[in-house]
Design a protein around this nucleic acid. Sequence first.
DNA 1: GCGACAG
DNA 2: ATCTTGTCGC
Length: 233
Amino acid sequence: MELSAPMHRWDVTPTEAVALQRELRERVVLEPPPGLRVERVAGADVSTEKGRDTGFGGVVVLDAGTLVPVAQAGSAVTLGFPYVPGLLSFRELPVVAVAWERLSMRPDVLIFDGHGIAHPRRLGIASHGGLLFGIPSIGCAKSLLVGTHGKLADARGSTSPIIHKGEVVGMAVRTRKSVQPVYVSPGHLMDLPTAVELVLRASPKYREPETTRHAHRMVNALRRADGEAAELE
DNA sequence: GCGACAG
DNA sequence: ATCTTGTCGC
């Protein structure tokens, strides 16, 4: 869609990235916009290849009621930052941003594959992305980066707070009976209860939200298609 | 100094 | 995340 002025450079060193996170965390709003109506939910993801430095990104927008895709956009961008625990957004957001700009329709909420404030400096990829795009966002990760939580009941919908340094930074959420929980945390313009509710609503059948499932499938398809095209050179 | 460590 | 085959459980 529209191009917005970048909030900061992406060609930074890990040390500079950490400094940027400490500044950006001050801008995160842990509260949904008054009267937020979620009619469309989107998922973002990035796929990388072993030997190469190209990141394939994608954003898929779903109707929040039916969870049927209504729009999507992809991207292929050269990765300029390595994977460093705690600095994931500096590797993946530049890729997601290109797909985001190509989207013909804006969602009301964006769910990321990774954490929001359940992060060493409370600025995981979901928080950083929410700030960058100026949209309510949620982090939904498959494993913990920081914090601990108590045991959860076996039923779908059971939860247990994620505690980090004495603070509740997220929630372990069982989206499917007898299956490992996902870790939900607010990104930006979002609070924990709303984030948990939206993730559960987006995950009626499988462990991960339909948003990230669709985004994941899309970026993998992009990567394979690119690989096949390269084989015919 | 020793582990832990989203994707 | 990616690389990979089969295998266990509902």
